[in-house]
Design a protein around this nucleic acid. Sequence first.
DNA 1: CTGAAAGCGCTTACAG
DNA 2: CTGAAAGCGCTTACAG
Lengths: 331, 331
Amino acid sequence: MKQTRPIRLEEVAALAGVSTATVSRYLNKPAQVASATGERIRAAVEATGYVPNMMAGALAGNRSRLIAVLVPEIAQSLFNDTVEAMIKELSVEGNNVVLALTGADNARLTSEIEIALSRQVDAIVLTGILSDNEVRRRLQASSATVIETWGLPEDPIDVAVGFSHEAVGKEIARFVQSRGYRRPHLIVPQSQRAVQRASAFAEQWISDGGEAPTQMEVSVPSHFGQGRSSFRALSDLTVPPDVVICGSDWIAQGLIVEAQVAGVRVPDKLAVIGFGNLRLAGDMRPTITSVDVDGGRIAREATRVLKARAQGESIETRIDVGFQIIARESA
Amino acid sequence: MKQTRPIRLEEVAALAGVSTATVSRYLNKPAQVASATGERIRAAVEATGYVPNMMAGALAGNRSRLIAVLVPEIAQSLFNDTVEAMIKELSVEGNNVVLALTGADNARLTSEIEIALSRQVDAIVLTGILSDNEVRRRLQASSATVIETWGLPEDPIDVAVGFSHEAVGKEIARFVQSRGYRRPHLIVPQSQRAVQRASAFAEQWISDGGEAPTQMEVSVPSHFGQGRSSFRALSDLTVPPDVVICGSDWIAQGLIVEAQVAGVRVPDKLAVIGFGNLRLAGDMRPTITSVDVDGGRIAREATRVLKARAQGESIETRIDVGFQIIARESA
DNA sequence: CTGAAAGCGCTTACAG
DNA sequence: CTGAAAGCGCTTACAG
């Protein structure tokens, strides 16, 4: 390793017989360079094998082309599809994604924001809910675009791209009622948003004349094993449920497996609803009724916002990408 | 957004009554600064709310503190635990991870390497196998540390931290034999390494006197649904298997679910072995026998290598972190 | 359409 | 232990 010094812009310019300014323009805004000149530069770049130093470019141009994406974790997360789509979308535009982990409880959210700011990122994409007002202000004072995703706060820090978890809860309640179920049971991962959905469900259910639904808390990140244990815990309930609304498809899947082993038929004896509409929801036996969130759409909207911002265009501050209940065999 | 100009080092220095050089030293190598001076600087940093511009620091110091991690995908990947551990480990040292996606077929591997180099990353962590010799040379000519993970090539580009997939294949073959199974069937995701494991399995199995195992190919990334369809495809085999070796725990899980629905008892009528030792392997019913790869260990070794490199220490070029067959109920 | 030159905000020999 | 100064490799008004 560590051999020859890399080629700089200056050497390309010398070879092409132009100034570094012109090479820089050719590389960044080719339309501003005469085509004959451009061709000479192109040849010089190729001949030298020039690779731009983006750190220098970032400092000089005050644009890092770095986007920080902050998620609780990635080992197994409902956000993964969104993050993947985001990385793909953004890299097309010449940006790179710095992925930071804030922990299942989002404990490292504010510190990771500080670090991202120090990195001079052009934008910060948040999935967690930021309650610290000082950091909120610091974020607003910075020149970075801040995109809150998955949620849809009343008063976004900057821009929000997501959907209403309250609406999801209410919609599921209506769905459950329309299917004729009478005794819903909720399995609620202790994340702010899952709790929000559960509350909204209960509210809607009760206002529609139902009894207050029973519910159980599980830790985050949610996983398959919780589904199994949750099924077993069902026998502790005085009122046996006829439908279980799970905070994630993983929980739903575990619940179904355990139910099958116990000889409880899904959905005949017990209906199950998941959340996230992961691939496995459609692949499971029985297939799992779930709530679809379009991660690709979130990523596209976020990218569009970033682009508009970079060009100084005005942008909406709340973009609702919606959600969809996908009815399948399990409920 | 876009308010007041950020504080610079110069303003901190002025407030503390020292030069920018001293502030920079205090921030990066506090031991080189007198404690009284350091205290004044600390106070000045706090009073001004100074946030260092890491892009400038990177350019001046020729050290970006950026590590590129290249993986095929993250929606659902066996590498996720490793990537998560890597991000955690590295961020403790003040580094950030740029996550780049190379595609399930690794088609974007070389282009993402170019981009990472342009970013002046201190290190590139690869999970895919790099066969392009030119890029290999370019990588070696760069000053970036290159860490190949998960695999353990004979001749690493720079440093390799992983395990032998061939050894995994052979070890599974011995395990299967020791358990008395006679007719293994392999479900092989078409990734280079899964194919390597399958070949090694077959080789060992045959050299131990077994009949050539049957096998079926599935696409990457592997998933639950493939397990279900693979089970159904088993009936096409002229010789019904007594054990199925799956390329991932997701396949194994899908296979078990489908077997249960079909009334085939696991492991009594059909044993199943997974790969990856995901959390669900221990949570599934029956629990899944799998191969454990310690992602945390890989991340720690990689971090150790990076640190040693940064300090100019010499380092090993091949670090074998091993693997472990975890025998559970399914086989 | 192009160039000379200033400047982005740091780090680091070098000298003391 | 500390400072003056050069320099990292680009971008971008500004002027022509």
